[in-house]
Design a protein around this nucleic acid. Structure first.
Length: 406
RNA sequence: GGGGGAAUACUCAAGCGGCCAACGAGGCCAGACUGUAAAUCUGGCGGCCACGCCUUCGCAGGUUCGAAUCCUGCUUCCCCCA
């Protein structure tokens, strides 16, 4: 980013908060003017951020913009969180090549609660303005809707690469999906937005806001996009890929999760999810990757939990994974009455939930993944007799159970 | 309104009427190796009272000794023309 030496230092500080981690910043000059004007007038900027009410489980990918919003909040700006309850009934086409399922109002409300609970781990919700866009869309009549649609043409819509791609691949595009960018843009008009934040996949939608505001005679909002963070394995982070670390995860899960991160992604994670100074990050990355990652895991975990919890989790990781010791809180199961004198090993494993089916359990046994008191049990036809003392059953590296006598 | 296509396991995607629990890829699981990963190598991925049995290829029927493969109807989607 080119420094602009003529800026007032305070303006510079505020601008830096927007710049940090930004991919697109439209337009930087506009924004710095806006900032200094706001500072001068002693008014906060209205920074809009739309939540996606269709996926209530937040993960670290979602934390990236929230961290920025947090910084802005600390600088005194006003965060306007838009709950797209009206848009949710349209279905956001972003990032999906398929039509999205449409949500009901009830689902949206339920998701909103979960969402804000989670966002509160990063943001000060008491200082956050939460608006539902049904506030203005519910009252809109058919004529107003038509008016809205006249503001853009089909070819303008098709500029969006996602739509174009879907056209080319003969995949369906619902007419309602064209409404989505318009609605999102209209939100900006309604809340008199100064700056809108969104993922890089949102750029098109964000720019529609500029267009609509100008058409309505408002000052066009500035737009700032952030990286969509990759998941642990480099693919887009998503719960459905199982490569995500959730914001509500326990300190332990968070630490263990981050430690699974691909080495090459550590730099990005440091930059976006921690506020460790850049020089220090560089130093860490130059050192042993394991140390760097341990630090990353600590920073992230400590932020969402506490330094103590993070340390404890790090300790557990070292013991259990590095030193291959047993976890401290092994699930314990007593020998059940209806298991008889002895039970076939595959069935036992399935009953304890260590494998989804006896068939799967058999495979695991054949592959040498199962240990009884540390001894590999590789015969799927073997069975375990009711024990007189605790027996340790291990399936793979992560699944354990202690079987106790009745 | 007319015409032409498509529906297969988590995803993508093969599949001559028998040799199909169904090629392949991704993904996932396990083992080895490691710095926790990644990469690499190996094996596996419907279920069960398990050398056998049962249920799968959009849904419902039918033809056949035998169907994911043929026929009929239905449902959903896509494309083209109007």
């Amino acid at each position: 980013m080119p420094e602009t030496p003529t800026l007032h230092p305070e303006t510079q500080t505020h601008l830096a908060a927007f710049q940090r981690g930004a991919v697109d910043l439209i337009d930087e000059v506009e924004l710095s003017t806006l900032i200094s004007a706001a500072l001068h007038a002693g008014r906060p900027l209205r920074v809009k951020f739309g939540m996606d009410p269709s996926s209530p489980d937040l993960h670290l990918g979602h934390a990236i913009p929230l961290m920025t919003l947090r910084d802005l909040q600390a600088l005194g700006h006003c965060i306007v969180l838009i709950v797209g309850d009206a848009t949710a009934m349209v279905g956001d086409p972003s990032g999906r090549n398929k039509l999205r399922p449409v949500l009901t109002r009830e689902q949206v409300e339920a998701n909103l609660v979960t969402y804000t609970d989670q966002a509160a781990r990063v943001l000060d919700m008491s200082k956050t303005e939460v608006r539902r866009n049904s506030e203005w869309f519910d009252g809109m009549g058919f004529e107003d809707l038509l008016q809205l649609t006249t503001r853009m043409t089909v070819s303008q819509m098709l500029e969006r690469d996602l739509f174009r791609r879907r056209m080319e691949q003969s995949e369906p595009i619902g007419i309602n999906e064209f409404l989505y960018p318009l609605m999102q843009g209209w939100d900006s008009v309604e809340v008199d937005c100064d700056v809108e934040l969104g993922g890089t996949d949102q750029l098109f939608n964000l720019l529609v806001g500029r267009r609509l505001q100008e058409q309505k005679g408002q000052r066009a909002q500035c737009v700032r996009t952030h990286t969509l963070i990759d998941g642990l394995d480099g693919r887009k982070m998503s719960k459905s890929y199982g490569n995500a670390v959730g914001l509500m995860d326990s300190a332990r899960d968070m630490t263990f999760g981050v430690m699974r991160l691909d080495d090459t992604l550590m730099g990005i994670w440091f930059a976006h999810l921690t506020r460790v100074p850049a020089e220090e990050v560089a130093r860490l990355l130059a050192g042993h990757p394991r140390e760097a990652k341990a630090r990353l895991a600590f920073e992230v975990t400590a932020f969402f939990h506490s330094a103590e919890d993070a340390e404890a989790a790090a300790g557990a990781f070292d013991r259990e994974v590095r030193d291959k010791a047993l976890p401290e809180d092994l699930p314990e199961h007593s020998w059940a009455g209806d298991w008889g004198q002895s039970l076939a090993l595959p069935n036992l494993i399935a009953k304890l939930g260590l494998a989804p089916s006896t068939s799967e359990a058999r495979r695991l046994i054949k592959q040498g993944a199962v240990r009884l008191d540390g001894e590999v049990a590789s015969d799927p036809t073997s069975s375990l007799a009711e024990p007189d003392s605790a027996v340790l059953l291990q399936v793979g590296k992560k699944r354990f159970a202690r079987i106790l006598p009745r």
